[in-house]
């Protein structure tokens, strides 16, 4: 990953944290004072290297993991904002990435009953009795990251 792509990624994540939404390619182009086409190519390279996930056939950012811009059952409150986690792992990844305490409202995959987890000073202080299940083996996580 070259310096330009790293700079594009840095702007994307900075905008996600500041705005709780992903920037468009045009917004990143304006901030970095580059052509939209150059940023579009960088977005695609970042997608191909799993540094971002774009929507199919689009430049719209779907995941900047652990942050998710789809609707999922994993709602996270941290740093005074509401976020969405891609999955159970990413939901706890948001407080970790932000280095802040966090609260996760989610659901049991079996019964749909609400569950809550709390992270305080990096420790899980609520929800410690919950189980987590991974269906997909690690080497196949990126075969279909949406399902994973």
């Amino acid at each position: 990953m070259d310096a330009f792509d790293l700079a594009v990624r840095r702007v994307v994540y900075a905008r996600v944290v500041a705005d709780a939404r992903p920037p468009t390619a045009a917004e990143v182009a304006a901030e970095l004072e580059h052509d939209d086409d150059e940023i579009a190519r960088a977005f695609r390279r970042l997608h191909d290297s799993h540094a971002l996930v774009l929507r199919d056939g689009s430049l719209e950012i779907r995941f900047a993991n652990p942050f998710c811009f789809d609707s999922t059952p994993h709602r996270v409150t941290a740093a005074g904002r509401a976020w969405t986690g891609t999955c159970a792992w990413d939901a706890l990844g948001i407080p970790a990435a932000l280095h802040r305490d966090g609260h996760v409202d989610s659901e049991c995959a079996c019964c749909g009953e609400p569950i809550e987890l709390e992270v305080t000073d990096e420790e899980l202080t609520r929800g410690a009795d919950l189980l987590v299940h991974f269906v997909v083996p690690a080497r196949r996580w990126w075969d279909d990251i949406g399902f994973t």
Partner: peptide
């Protein structure tokens, strides 16, 4: 299958 405590440890290290 593993505990949410382990998942949080993983999340802290990974993310």
């Amino acid at each position: 299958t593993f505990s949410a405590v382990t998942l949080n440890e993983l999340a802290q290290r990974w993310w």
